[in-house]
Amino acid sequence: MSEAFIRCEKLTKVYRKGDQEIVPIRDLDLEIARGAFVSLMGPSGSGKTTLLNLLAGIDSPTRGALHIGSNDLARLSRGALAAWRSREVGIVFQSYNLVPVLTAFENVELPLLLQPLSRAERARRAMEALDTVGLGDRASHFPSQLSGGQEQRVAIARAIVARPPLLLADEPTGDLDRESADLVLALLASLHRDRGTTIVMVTHDPEAAARADTLLHLDKGRLAARESRGAEAAR
């Protein structure tokens, strides 16, 4: 059995919207093995994106425990969470979220600015990441000069440039046509296969979900079902 890399115990997130209390994640128990490729599926409002935000440390749990690697995220300060994110997590958003005034190269370089690397080393790693996603020749292009698929590949390059062990993707193919979506999914699959990166991907797309070796179905903030394909990576 693989080592648990992500462990949620009674994980709960509560929002307050006016007088209304919203609980997108409720008493969730979950373990994900190191090196797993997991798809999170479920209807809108099932808590997929909230769970992803909690795993990324950009939102904090209301109750319960959330361990990733050796870190208890619930106990880390905002500053420590930011530092942890810069080293340990890459995030891919549905809407790419590239900074429009920066070139593809500069967007990819962003996470490296927080690391004690020389300019040459940053440039080497950023170009390597762009080459990995097949966009080395688009380094000087601004996001407005790229197609949606290219933007998403730049976003993936940015997510992997610091070589994080965990990659979180929120509907990475949601805004893409089939051809671009296949390219992005192939890229994620190769990162999982070649680098052993743990990937958690939120998706509505069954074809995208099929690329993962584990499918988790969320419903009303709880784990409703799980399917494992091949190695049992999630329990």
Binding site: A56, I58, A82, S86, N97, V99, P100, L110, P111
Partner: peptide, 16 residues
Amino acid sequence: SRDLAVLQAVGFGGRA
């Protein structure tokens, strides 16, 4: 706000 949130998401802390 989105750009700043992206910077935070890639690891920029409040001080940065």
